[in-house]
Design a protein around this nucleic acid. Structure first.
Lengths: 245, 245
DNA sequence: GAAATAGTGTCTATCAGACATTATGGC
DNA sequence: GCCATAATGTCTGATAGACACTATTTC
């Protein structure tokens, strides 16, 4: 860096222009009690006070080195989970989405395994809402309803060509459980044989020999599996098929 | 909106917190002279003065109603093209990507048909750089090299399951031209028969009867086609195959 | 052994890749 | 008529969807 550049930077006033407000929001999914669920918080401040909303907030430019770090930090604060599946969804920015000012928010979506969940806090303020269709059974603050719909669509879409659903299960799980997770999210029954072929041929699961899951009322127990390595680059071939019946 | 909320909004001071700087950048692609090209501008200000960079800049919260509008406006300013293919790529935000301050930038990528291009301006300041591999033959400012690599990867990926390549051609084009465009971007020869089957079965092209493209040196002229309607939801089935030979 | 769930085998329609063949127009 | 390019035909291996079947456990 030459002297000229140093002088320029010393002179630079970053508040010279009116700038949009920038936040990070999270769509946090898990599967519990036979449904896909999303973590929402009730707003106790204006605007949209009393409405349910996606968790999120401002970047802390002193604590967060990157927006990914910011999303990770907010997730940890909300759920106590440190290393989940976390992926950037999209950025929504406009003059009207918040009545206060021009805002942009970068939205991440996270998948949490049911076993990793911290116990639910005050259910009047933080709640796992079941996803029905493309949203939840309550109107959301700002444009969060549309954001949630986009996140659900992305999740469904990615189920078809990746293995991300394993991140919604506990560390060990059975193939019927995995299939059930797919069916809950896609809202569609799948063919067992084709599903198993697809999963086993991908060779990403590791059978835990001799171990079975106990579940009351079940008849024959199922083989337990563990996820081997998650590789974002491993996709299913012939992606669109869903084994729908 | 009740009185309480009005009072809250009147009181609100949006400059209370230190916030990141927020910009919009563009990766503008076209195909010309047998190569995929990206529009870069030479920076004449610090930092990274003299480096080539993606076009972009601050959101104008008075003129731009949304970030999409902002991207559209910047594209129009740079290229004179009003309604191209424009899609949000991702948002990059961190403390270090700009030495001045914590910045976030939402990046869009655009595809321009060769016929729509405004004549090149001052080539010392604005230039269509050929894409080689995942980037260009000059280092870029900030993290723009990485952003460009991501955009190229996304473009290649989307070629495999969508029809977006038609946006890189003039309004009318022949199937050999379309195939050549695919081959240039994917950097791989494709099988003619399979390619044509794929394109024609999608039924998105309309043959212009009796019209042929003149091109010196060519022997048999080819049928001209026009793109019917671009439908973002129409994908190719069995997407991953590339007809590679 | 009945019931229920876990898990396997196999047939078939579809389709992508490969490559051969025909068609057409410029020279 | 020759040649280069455009366009079509066809064979085949792979695979997803369908569904029947076997296996194993609880009661």
């Amino acid at each position: 860096m030459d002297n000229d550049e140093q002088a320029f930077l010393a002179d630079y006033d970053p508040t010279r222009f009116e700038r949009p407000s920038f936040t990070v929001d999270l769509v946090i999914f898990t599967v519990r009690d036979e449904s896909l669920r999303v973590l929402l918080v009730r707003r106790d401040e204006h605007p949209a006070r009393g409405c349910w909303a996606l968790p999120g907030g401002f970047v802390d430019i002193h604590r967060d080195a990157t927006i990914d770090d910011c999303a990770q930090r907010k997730l940890l604060e909300k759920t106590g989970v440190a290393a989940p599946y976390l992926e950037q969804l999209a950025t929504y920015g406009s003059r009207d989405r918040d009545p206060r000012y021009w805002t942009a928010t970068t939205v991440y979506f996270a998948l949490l395994g049911a076993s990793a969940l911290a116990p639910e806090q005050d259910p009047a303020r933080v709640r796992w809402w079941p996803v029905q269709g493309c949203g939840v059974a309550t109107p959301l603050a700002f444009d969060h309803g549309r954001i949630l719909a986009d996140a659900v669509a992305r999740l469904r879409n990615k189920l078809e060509y990746t293995h991300i659903a394993v991140h919604l299960l506990p560390e060990t799980f059975t193939l019927p459980e995995l299939q059930r997770t797919y069916e809950l999210i896609l809202q569609q029954p799948l063919d067992k044989s084709s599903f198993r072929r697809r999963v086993t041929e991908a060779a990403l699961l590791e059978a835990l020999p001799g171990r079975f899951r106990d579940s009351p009322g079940r008849r024959r127990p199922a083989q337990l599996y563990r996820f081997r390595h998650y590789d974002r680059e491993t996709f299913f071939p012939r992606s669109l098929a869903r084994y729908a019946r």
